[in-house]
């Protein structure tokens, strides 16, 4: 059994190695693109596919609105795509012979990196660069190093959490499958489904929580009533 911490390139594109996770990600992108094409013919009386798509949008909007208390439109595409991609990537392990992209370190790290950058982007967009930087000095300037360290570690924790849960699930299933390949891994695979959904939800919710925190910290504090 190969170490889950090791990933071998599927093929080389010149000097660039193309890993399996990248290819699976492309497949997921194609699949999601096809689903999006299926829902491109939108009507006032929705089909089943359109109704499911609208249910997904409404659910994502509701979660964003509950966390931010603001209109969900600026965050909908980012948070919704993160959730859908991670969910599909986690569940791709059910396809025999496919390792989920999130079970390798590069994909969760890329997602965490995108979230880290999006926190900066939305923080500056919400309160300006000065406001965003002043957010690190709260509640007082002494906290600046700790706040900066926190912004790195919380993003790193998202990466580690997602990678660790998915990788461990795949690793356990692989171990059990090597010992008793027939039927025994099925409960673990079902548990892996639940774990994958929960991890996708946690990653998306934490992302919007951190983004909201950055936006709120960037805004000027309300004046105290005399």
């Amino acid at each position: 059994m190969d170490s889950p911490l090791l990933s071998e390139p599927l093929f080389l594109l010149g000097p660039v190695p193309i890993m399996v996770s990248v290819v699976v990600t492309w497949a997921i992108m194609v699949a999601l693109g096809l689903v999006a094409l299926l829902t491109c013919r939108l009507t006032q009386v929705p089909s089943r596919v359109q109704a499911a798509a609208e249910l997904l949008v409404i659910t994502v909007d509701s979660q964003i609105r509950d966390v931010t208390g603001a209109a969900p439109a600026p965050y909908r595409a980012f948070i919704g795509t993160l959730f859908v991609f991670i969910l599909i990537a986690n569940w791709s392990s059910l396809i025999p012979g496919i390792d989920p992209p999130t079970a390798t370190m590069e994909t969760p790290a890329a997602l965490a990196l995108i979230v880290f950058l999006s926190i900066i982007f939305f923080g500056i967009q919400g309160g300006g660069l000065g406001g965003f930087l002043r957010g690190f000095a709260r509640p007082n300037p002494v906290m600046i190093p700790l706040n900066m360290l926190e912004s790195l570690t919380r993003t790193f924790s998202m990466f580690v959490r997602l990678f660790g849960n998915v990788m461990s699930g795949v690793f356990v299933i692989a171990i059990v499958g090597s010992l008793a390949a027939l039927l025994v891994p099925i409960p673990l695979m079902a548990l892996d489904l639940l774990t994958g959904a929960v991890q996708a939800y946690i990653f998306a919710i934490l992302s919007i929580v951190f983004i909201t925190s950055a936006v709120e910290k960037g805004k000027p504090p309300p004046e105290k009533e005399s």
Binding site: V22, T25, T39, A53, R76, A77
Partner: peptide, 29 residues
């Protein structure tokens, strides 16, 4: 830890975000 893969996956996710925003999230909303 392959940086090329990190870059590929980051770009892939960004492209996917753009694609779904263009063809899924915005029209459905």
């Amino acid at each position: 830890f392959d940086l090329w893969t990190l870059g590929f996956q980051a770009v892939n996710v960004l492209v996917l975000i753009w694609l779904l925003q263009r063809f899924f999230w915005t029209p459905v909303a």
